[in-house]
Simulated assay, not measured.
Amino acid sequence: MIIRRATAADAGRLTELVRGSGAYRGGYAAMVEDYEVTAEYIAAHDVFAAEGDDGTLLGFYALLLGPPAELDLMFVADAAQGRGVGRRLAAHMKDRARSAGLSRVRVVSHPPSEGFYRSVGAVRVGTVPATLPGVTWERPELVFALG
């Protein structure tokens, strides 16, 4: 697996990964059904893609350098779940944030993903109320301290 900076050419594949994520089925589907990762978004933020040796997209993350710094997106392909891709992406994100001079990174988590973020070092600091269109549930707010 390699982790590389995403390019505008990746926008369609990243969008497909988000929209097809099994973590957003059922009541969570409205949040991602029309979501688009655009070339402009990729150019404006630190977006990194994980690929298998054969070029298969395994996952990606988007780090907003802020202020405040925030992990805006992190997705792992359903077929790559449980293979350490998320852990490697999280470690890469923390290294990238440190190299950018950040001391912390905020995450507003999809509720079922909170346990993953905690397992890679994030600490829950609160809850964000339902405020976005298509989001009718509270979301955990976590922080990665990058000491």
Rank of each mutant, 00 (worst) to 15 (best):
E51I: 01
G82M: 09
A11I: 06
V128R: 10
P112F: 01
V32D: 06
P140Q: 09
R124I: 11
G55V: 08
V76M: 05
T15G: 02
L142I: 14
R98A: 06
A30M: 11
G27R: 02
M74Q: 10
A30F: 07
R106E: 15
R106V: 15
Y28E: 07
G82W: 13
G86E: 11
I42Q: 02
D53H: 12
P140A: 10
Y41W: 13
S21V: 06
A62P: 01
L57W: 09
V125Y: 11
V135Q: 15
V128Q: 14
G22M: 09
T136I: 05
R104C: 14
D10P: 05
Y61N: 05
G55S: 04
T38A: 00
I2S: 07
H92Q: 00
S119M: 05
P111W: 01
P67N: 04
M31G: 10
Y24F: 14
M93A: 07
A97W: 00
D78A: 11
D34T: 14
Y41N: 10
H45C: 09
V107M: 14
A97P: 10
D34H: 15
V135W: 11
V143W: 12
G84I: 04
D95G: 06
E114P: 00
A80L: 02
L57N: 00
F144W: 13
D72G: 04
E114H: 06
T15A: 03
E51S: 00
A39I: 00
V37I: 08
S99E: 14
L132Y: 09
V120P: 01
D46P: 00
Y117N: 12
A79F: 09
V107Y: 12
A9Q: 05
A11L: 03
P140W: 06
D10W: 07
E141M: 15
